[in-house]
Amino acid sequence: MTEPAAGSIYDLGYRRYEGARAGRRRAIWALYADSLRGAFGLGRGTAAKIAPAILIGLALIPAVVQLAIGVLVPADVELITHDDYYNLVKFLLGLYCAVIAPDMVGRDQRNRSLVLYFARAISRLDYAVGKYAAMWTAMLVITLVPQLLLFVGNALSTDDFGGYLGQSWDQLLPIVATAALGAALIASIGLAIAAQTPRRAFATVGIIVTFVFTLALAGVMVGELTTEVTRLAIFASPFNLVEGFSAWMFRVPPSDPDSLLLAAGYPLAPYAAVAVAVTLLGVGLLIRRYQRVEA
């Protein structure tokens, strides 16, 4: 302890931090990890855990059913295929995004803690990137995990487990690719909207309206009106984009007569291109928002 300077009344015992400083990269990592935990309500109260848990559970049901069939009935049944899995769970993806995205970026704005982040090692860009990475990982949990489980379930439901793996290993690449791109797309749209407002209710409603509303609009514009111009509306709907690039990556052209992809009649590769473009746009909007937001 140094001698208290003359004139000071108390020695408050302030000390300098002498240890190692972990630096910027570690700060981004901490933000990422903490945001990801928060997405599932870990480290928060029970109320924050319920909704994500329910939605992840619901998304797992098709895969679990397939797994159960595979274990109980040793026959070749493939009830749910990878390429139409997203079609089945699209509402769950949208809801999950609408539940976790507002918490992920809204709390810091609501509690005015952005100023604390930006005053230290994390820059505005780092913050946006860290939050986006966390959101993307959280979305992967609900896109990739059920798909992998489904893969195992399908493998178990054939008579020849090893034979199925040998025959279907080429499915793994599209499984990972669709999950990664789907998660990236939905996460970018969700965060770009949620970051605009500190209020949770606004953000949730905004995200839901965006997803569901574009889906309904595409349904009418493509399925009912079927003109050259209105058919383009299918590219404005994120869920239809996911459906489109899944069909492209799994190389399964749409066959269901009700399918909007069939009604629109476009080649499938553009869906992936538009999805990438929308993702980049969403991330760009997110970064721009954090360049300007009042900390």
Binding site: A51, L58, G94, L95, T204
Partner: peptide, 13 residues
């Protein structure tokens, strides 16, 4: 408290 989310789950799920 989070009636909005529960209502959304009712409507969409």
């Amino acid at each position: 408290e989070r009636a909005l989310v529960i209502g959304l789950i009712y409507v969409f799920v």
